[in-house]
C-alpha cells in the first residue's frame, strides 16, 4: 500500500517536473529573440556540391562529422548489445524454431516482396542527392527486409563472421577513410574534391546504408549465434 503511495507521489512529482519544464520551454520560446538561421546559407552553398537536396548537403557535407559520429554511435550500440546479450543467451531467448507452419500466402508473397524492398531501398539511396531520402532511410529499409526474411523463413540470423562484421563497420570506416583522404589531397579533413564530391557522397551513403541495415537487423533480432560462445573476433 505504502509502495503504491510512494509510486504515486513519484509520478506526480515527475508530472509536475515535466510540466514545469514544458511550460518553461513554451515561455522561453515565446520570449525568444529570433535570429536568422543558416537555411539561406545552406541553399546558397549547396549548388557548389551539385547536391540538390539541402538535407543531404547538411548531413554529408556541412555537418558530415556529426553524421560520422552518429554512425559510430550506432555501431557502438550494436557492440553494446553484443556485450549485453551473449550469443548463447540470445539463442535461448529467440523463439525462432518450432511453431505452426507459416502461411502459404506469406510464403508466396515474400520472395516477391523482397526485390521490391531492395528496389525501394536503392531508390531511396539514389533519391538522396536530389530529394528526400538517403542512407539512413535506405539502410533501415534494408534492415527491415532482412528482418522480414529471417522472421518468415524461420531462419536464424547469419553467423557474425568476418564478412558480416566487416559490413557492420564498413560505413564508418569508409566515411573515415574518405575524410582522411581529403587530408592527404592537401585539403581539409572531411573535405571532398569539388569534382568528386557527389560521387564520394554517394559512395559513403551506399556503405552507410549497408552498415545501418545490418545494425538495425542485429538490434532487432538480438545477437546472431556463433559456433562457440565467444565475442566476435576472439581466438582462443
Amino acid at each position: 500500500m505504502k509502495a503504491v503511495t510512494n509510486e504515486r507521489i513519484k509520478n506526480i512529482t515527475l508530472a509536475l517536473l515535466a510540466s514545469t519544464i514544458g511550460l518553461g520551454l513554451v515561455v522561453g520560446l515565446l520570449n525568444a529573440p529570433r535570429q536568422p538561421g543558416v537555411a539561406e546559407q545552406v541553399l546558397s552553398m549547396q549548388t557548389h556540391l551539385k547536391l540538390e537536396q539541402p538535407v543531404t548537403a547538411v548531413l554529408l557535407a556541412f555537418r558530415g562529422y556529426d553524421t560520422l559520429l552518429e554512425i559510430a554511435v550506432l555501431v557502438m550500440a550494436v557492440i553494446a548489445v553484443l556485450i549485453l546479450v551473449p550469443p548463447r543467451k540470445a539463442r535461448a531467448a529467440a523463439p525462432i524454431t518450432a511453431g505452426p507452419a507459416p502461411s502459404p500466402l506469406m510464403l508466396w508473397l515474400l520472395p516477391r516482396l523482397l526485390p521490391v524492398l531492395v528496389l525501394i531501398a536503392g531508390y531511396l539511396w539514389w533519391a538522396g542527392s536530389s530529394r528526400p531520402g538517403g542512407a539512413f532511410q535506405a539502410g533501415t529499409l534494408v534492415g527491415a527486409a532482412a528482418v522480414i526474411v529471417l522472421l518468415s523463413q524461420q531462419m536464424r540470423p547469419p553467423r557474425l563472421g568476418r564478412i558480416w562484421r566487416a559490413i557492420l563497420v564498413l560505413g564508418l570506416l569508409c566515411f573515415l577513410a574518405i575524410g582522411l583522404l581529403g587530408l592527404l589531397w592537401g585539403q581539409a579533413f572531411l573535405q571532398y574534391p569539388d569534382s568528386w564530391a557527389k560521387a564520394l557522397i554517394m559512395l559513403i551513403e551506399l556503405t552507410l546504408s549497408l552498415s545501418i541495415g545490418l545494425c538495425f537487423m542485429l538490434l532487432v533480432l538480438g545477437v546472431p549465434p556463433r559456433r562457440r560462445d565467444r565475442f566476435p573476433g576472439e581466438r582462443s
Partner: peptide, 17 residues
Amino acid sequence: PGLILPLVAAPVSFLLG
C-alpha cells in the same frame, strides 16, 4: 584529425579481435 584516430581503431579492433 590525428587526435581522433581512436575512432578508426575502434572498428579495426572489432574486426581483428
